[in-house]
Amino acid sequence: MSRWLDIIENFLASLFSNIKLVEKGLLGLEGSYVELLTILALGLLAVIPVMVPESNRQRWRHVNQIFGIAIFIFVVFTCLGVFGMIRNFYRGLHEIGRENIIALYYCSVPVTILVTSLLFGPAFCGWICPTGALQEFSGFITRKWTVPWKKAGYPFSWVVLTMALFAAAVFLLWMYRLSMTRLFFIEDSSIYWSEVLIILLFILVFRMKQWDARLRRLRYLSFLIIVFGAIMSLRITSPVHFGFAKVYDPASFLSTVMVVLAAFTIPMVWCRYLCPWRCVIAWAAKHSVRSIHFDSSKCITCGKCGEVCDLDAVKNGIIDTNECHMCYKCVDTCPAKCFSIKDNWKK
């Protein structure tokens, strides 16, 4: 058994270490490792939702997500991890006046995301975020089980329970392996987020309908822990971090696997319950220039908008800005064209 785990881990380590395609940052700011390509790519990817034709918008969105993964995991060196960005922002603020170049490096990504979210709505979540994209693509695989489950109002399901059990088994087996071969530090704390994710899966199997909205409060707790950690100089790496950092980071890799497995069971589960960035993005979404408007007079109450939303952010045409990822699925699916996108520059 141990030998097989050894082989699997070595295989994964060789597969996922050194996954960057370039050895140096492209478009580097002279005299530093600051990559202007990161800001440029983020800005461009955030503008795409505004530019693409309505007819093929969802296809464009997936292309954008794939392009985001390709750029941020395989090309640029900047961390786009949901934990790291908060911590980096805090560190960047501290570096202002001390070393401005490093301040620029650490602040640029979160500031770009916030500014584009204020301009174009929370399109980062729906169109760019690699963690979100991974979950969405994973969700495609188990759609034929999860969509009927959702339509039925999230009753107890043996299929979903089996998937949760499988995820838990993978987590425990992997943790057993890692505990024998690694020492863990504070920065590997994403394994605790994974543990909570597994516990949540079991809770949701039985109580999704009743507790879904309340459990989303956990994002605030997640945000507070990361901010507190940043203030206390604790580095906690997030899922998918290993992809940004050009390293095989076992804890971060395990967390990523758990996010993917959990997303098989419940679509966008990380974004729903644990993503700390959602708190900040939701604030930006509320004050965003771009928003989706619903014309209730046209509504034929077909319920399609709610069905297609992976986050259950739309109910009877009413969009919850705290949850919306600005993916425009509801807009594109509505047969009565009740939804319209408006840019209010007076905001």
């Binding site: 140096k24 940052g25 530093s32 060196f77």
Partner: peptide, 8 residues
């Protein structure tokens, strides 16, 4: 001479 390293 100067040389730019890839990172910090």
């Amino acid at each position: 001479w100067t040389f730019q390293m890839p990172h910090e």
